[in-house]
């Protein structure tokens, strides 16, 4: 099958700092990719490149056969993006914000109003649709953001830490939503720190460290490879330079 996202020899520098080193990934339609790695590994940079926010990289990124540098607009319309801890124009109401997003995705007004209403209702925000978001909690804002990323029914959904700030019930809703979206054929690129969620929702896990892919496979494959049970241990085994016990020991010894 033709990969829906093809990343080839992707390199990215911030100044002289080499943050992504020769990353090559092919993603099939319908896959749920769990994209994990330690802080500063290059997760956010990859996500930003895929979402079209960064253009100065070397290598190639094709989405559905379209070169993201040649036609970023066409690629962007295929992608729904939910950023991590995003800033919002919070003097707008959710209704206004979502119709702005809808217009930017070229959706007809009627469709936006209907979808936004239904989705916010599902998140329990129907009573807050006409309130300015400057009084919203973090979780409420996150729900609006998730809605804004799904509004145009994109084929590819990029989620960067989408559960931050959500309460337990909303986490369940979003996890099931990811599952159902994947079953309906959407491709999902899920970048996160939360191992337990990644383990549950994704059918392929890509682990990057210091800008390089260090593991790539289903959770079962990774288990066999590393001979460890939980994703947390696999993660530690692949990315940690010294044992965690030593580190925590050192932390404690700092008081001496």
């Amino acid at each position: 099958m033709e990969p829906i996202i093809r990343i080839q020899n992707l390199n990215k520098f911030y100044g002289t700092k080499h943050v992504l080193k020769d990353i090559s990934i092919d993603i099939e339609p319908g896959q749920v990719i769990g994209y994990i790695g330690p802080n500063g590994a290059g997760k956010s940079t990859t996500v930003k490149i895929l979402a079209g926010l960064l253009a100065d990289f070397t290598g190639d990124v094709f989405v559905k056969g379209i070169d993201i540098r040649k036609d970023p607009v066409a690629v962007k319309s295929l992608i729904g993006f939910v950023p991590e801890l995003a800033e919002l124009y919070d003097v707008l109401t959710p209704n206004e914000f979502l119709s702005l997003m809808g217009s930017l995705y070229n959706l007809p007004e009627g469709v936006v109003t209907e979808r936004a209403g239904k989705m916010l209702d599902a998140f329990g925000l129907s009573g807050n649709m006409n309130q300015r978001m400057d009084t919203f909690s973090k979780g409420m804002k996150q729900k609006v953001l998730i809605t804004s990323g799904l509004l145009h029914n994109p084929e590819i959904i990029i989620l960067d830490e989408p559960l931050s700030g959500l309460d337990a019930n909303s986490v369940i809703i979003v996890k099931e939503l990811i599952d159902k979206l994947a079953k309906s054929g959407k491709t999902i690129f899920y970048s996160s720190h939360m191992m337990d969620v990644v383990e549950k929702v994704s059918n392929r896990i890509i682990l990057i460290d210091k800008g390089e892919v260090v593991a790539d496979g289903s959770i079962d494959e990774l288990r066999q490879l590393q001979n460890k049970e939980s994703l947390e241990d696999i993660f530690a085994g692949l990315t940690a330079t010294e044992s965690m016990h030593e580190a925590s020991e050192k932390l404690l010894n700092a008081f001496d």
Partner: peptide, 17 residues
């Protein structure tokens, strides 16, 4: 200008020609 300038990501991820 805006103190919420970071919120302008919405223009960059949407297919704004």
């Amino acid at each position: 200008y805006s103190d919420k300038f970071k919120a302008s990501w919405i223009f960059f991820v949407t297919p704004l020609e």
